[in-house]
């Protein structure tokens, strides 16, 4: 099953490498991983998406907690949560395609953020499934390039997750 896991860790050199090494060494898969500092600049927050049986996910969380630089691990999938991912797609945009692409972008509540004579860059935000749907809507020949941020997640409700 797909899980979104938030990991708070010391904002120190090598901390991210420890997480990546752990996944590689133990054969866990990473679908996506994003990292940036939090409101507390001494801490970074990783959001990672992984897949595995309940047993594997339990081990992943235990092993992450075992890393000395990690202060907190939360499996967001266990509760109600919001997921967002940002994607930028560079597309071929010529002739009648231009209007069609604009319409599609609007339907997906995206924005065109760069325009050229023969191309657009479209920004779309949403959960990963929505972004996949947008890509499927486009013709393979239309897409020139895609870049995705990887998923971010936060639990619903006012209560923040303590970082340690």
């Amino acid at each position: 099953m797909r899980h979104i896991i938030s990991v708070w860790l010391e904002n120190a050199a090598g901390a991210l490498a420890r997480v990546a090494t752990l996944f590689a060494a133990r054969g866990y898969n990473i679908e996506s991983l994003t990292v940036a500092p939090t409101e507390d600049p001494t801490l970074s927050r990783i959001t990672l998406v992984t897949r595995g049986s309940d047993h594997v996910i339990e081990q992943i969380i235990k092993q992450l907690n075992k890393l000395v630089d990690v202060t907190r691990v939360v499996d967001l999938t266990e509760g109600v949560h919001i997921e967002r991912e940002l994607m930028m797609v560079k597309v071929r945009a010529e002739g009648t395609m231009r209007a069609e692409l604009k319409r599609l972008t609007d339907i997906f509540r995206g924005r065109i953020i760069d325009i050229g004579h023969t191309h657009y860059v479209i920004e779309v935000t949403g959960d990963s499934a929505k972004l996949n749907a947008f890509i499927e809507t486009l013709d393979d020949n239309t897409i020139l390039e895609t870049v995705r941020s990887g998923a971010l997640g936060v639990a619903r409700g006012r209560k923040p997750v303590a970082s340690s």
């Binding site: 047993h55 339990e58 081990q59 235990k62 092993q63 907690n65 075992k66």
Partner: peptide
């Protein structure tokens, strides 16, 4: 003492 050792290979 290590939670990661528990249920790693055997339930």
């Amino acid at each position: 003492v290590d939670p990661a050792s528990i249920a790693k290979t055997v339930r």
